[in-house]
Write a protein that binds this DNA or RNA. Sequence first.
DNA 1: GTAAATAGGTTTAACCTTAAACTTACTGCT
DNA 2: AGCAGTAAGTTTAAGGTTAAACCTATTTAC
Lengths: 340, 340
Amino acid sequence: MVTITDIAAATGVSATTVSNVIHGRSNRVSEETVAKINEAIKKLGYSPNMSARALVSRQSKVVGFINHTMPTSDYNPMDDPFTATFIGIIEKALRENGYYLMVRTVTSSEELLALLRNWNMDGLFINGVFRDSFFETIDSLDIPVVLIDSYIDSKKCSNVGLEDRTGCYMATKYLIDHGHRQIVFAAPPFFEEGVVYERFEGYKKALKEAGIPFDESMVIQTELDYDSCLTAARSILELPGVTGIVATADVLAAGIMIHLRSFHKSCPKDYSIIGFDDLSLAKLITPPLTTVHQDMNMKGSIAVDIMLKKLEGEPLKHSHVTLPTELVIRESVSTIYTKQ
Amino acid sequence: MVTITDIAAATGVSATTVSNVIHGRSNRVSEETVAKINEAIKKLGYSPNMSARALVSRQSKVVGFINHTMPTSDYNPMDDPFTATFIGIIEKALRENGYYLMVRTVTSSEELLALLRNWNMDGLFINGVFRDSFFETIDSLDIPVVLIDSYIDSKKCSNVGLEDRTGCYMATKYLIDHGHRQIVFAAPPFFEEGVVYERFEGYKKALKEAGIPFDESMVIQTELDYDSCLTAARSILELPGVTGIVATADVLAAGIMIHLRSFHKSCPKDYSIIGFDDLSLAKLITPPLTTVHQDMNMKGSIAVDIMLKKLEGEPLKHSHVTLPTELVIRESVSTIYTKQ
DNA sequence: GTAAATAGGTTTAACCTTAAACTTACTGCT
DNA sequence: AGCAGTAAGTTTAAGGTTAAACCTATTTAC
């Protein structure tokens, strides 16, 4: 391993002088020496030992991407295509700015705190649903934190999220405007807080505005995998009069659609379905899925932009960003003409 | 920050003794002291400073997940759903064994070497196509390396891959067995080496066995995004007599399928299509896609298993693992009856 | 002409952890 | 009694880097 001392020895100066050159403090070093040192660095192939730097400077240049899950869950958070895309985007931006990305799943506050002590991380992206107790831990940290899709109110932590409520409101309203009155809300079982809660509120708001009474039995809780969608489809079949379905994820919409078809119910003839996310999948299924679009690239680049500004100590005005959603109209919704 | 010295002070012993307890070398410490120290660790909330450990021990407990791309490319390697799932799987296993995962994209040997010097990584997963020069660098490393889907022959590096050739052979043969003779091979433009090359060989082998002359014009090079699939579909339409399509990715198969439909060509009536990967997508499109299945969870867990064994210094017998593929028959292929 | 400032450095100590070498008190054996 | 062996530690040095304090020769200011 080539160290700063090796460079110093090779150029006949002290380690500190090499360090000064590396950090661009060249006002303290003659041009000639700077040139000599840079040459030696190149020739000997020196790169800094980040551990030593972290130890002395208490800054590691490591940013964590944290997934928070329940201890019991063996759900793979990376199965979500958005999480993955997101990581790709932030890794690139961090790298271009001299930072490194460590990916980690934690199940408790203690694990998170231990992780931070382990690595002296400079900043944190935190993804996933979490309880209030976990939030308190996050809010007490003194490093930059950017939350993703979190609905917890914090002065310190930034958040990058979506107009979930409005998005789902638009989707539901679109169905209502097309004559649907009996509309199922299909979602994974996280109604108490966060993204699903907000979307649920949007759904209920659209119903209320149209004077349609909210019916608890219209809520279908389901996991997102293919088999769970079958169960969801069965439940929907048992509800009389349903013509519309709002699903909080495209995979859910697509899964329900395909299983309904296996029961000889077609979309949009028998059921009109709207998804959420606008995955590439949405265009590829038949019929193409009407869905609420979210711009993942935007989400990623805004999140990393906030992080980098925080890391460089720039003051931020808007650190709670809520990105707009957009209803993308394709062919999974039909109009119902009611006799009147 | 609570350090080992704080624990030492709190319990009235030396730092070394605390270190010994932490590392389970308790034969050198009395039971009473062990208990006292453990209590203090818990109470004060000590976790080791990994930087200091790495500095002195030259082992960082960091494993890198490296994507190799061309410097010019702004393709996001994480957009591939497999890469993401893979990362999720290995992160979990590494975590359970006391390791940390750093995700990084590199574009050259120099970047990789610098990264290794930066962090003293203990091991490396390397993903993506790479040239021979890059391979030489990898092969010269003295830490465990597990390659993913690489076809470069190395004694030192392990590899976890797929029976790509056989998979694509089966797909092509399946089309031939169903009466198809004019079969397009659609793939991204990496034919010189690696995964695509192997699949291409499988395609040609099936053709040859059936006595069908290979026709260069049947090869369609295309990127995987939705719009590129349109171009690919157009090219296919211009080829007279084509009835079958082998695509090296499900997204490609699905994209071509949907665009062919926009030209009023249906699958499997006008074109029979086979994909590769068996993404969740494959079940959700219409018609459900016949495709070559690969078991990503298996791939991930085998890869991380090899890595962990290597990290613990266990000797390995089989470190080049080629996972079998399986043709999953759905509904995107029809039989052609030729008059004779 | 002399003090002050500046250029261009060097020396030292610290960051936290660990391995190696060293110490001390006691037990057991002959 | 004398010695080896062991239990239970401690001390020291090292790992690579950096900030703070220090040093020396030359230049500038008046």
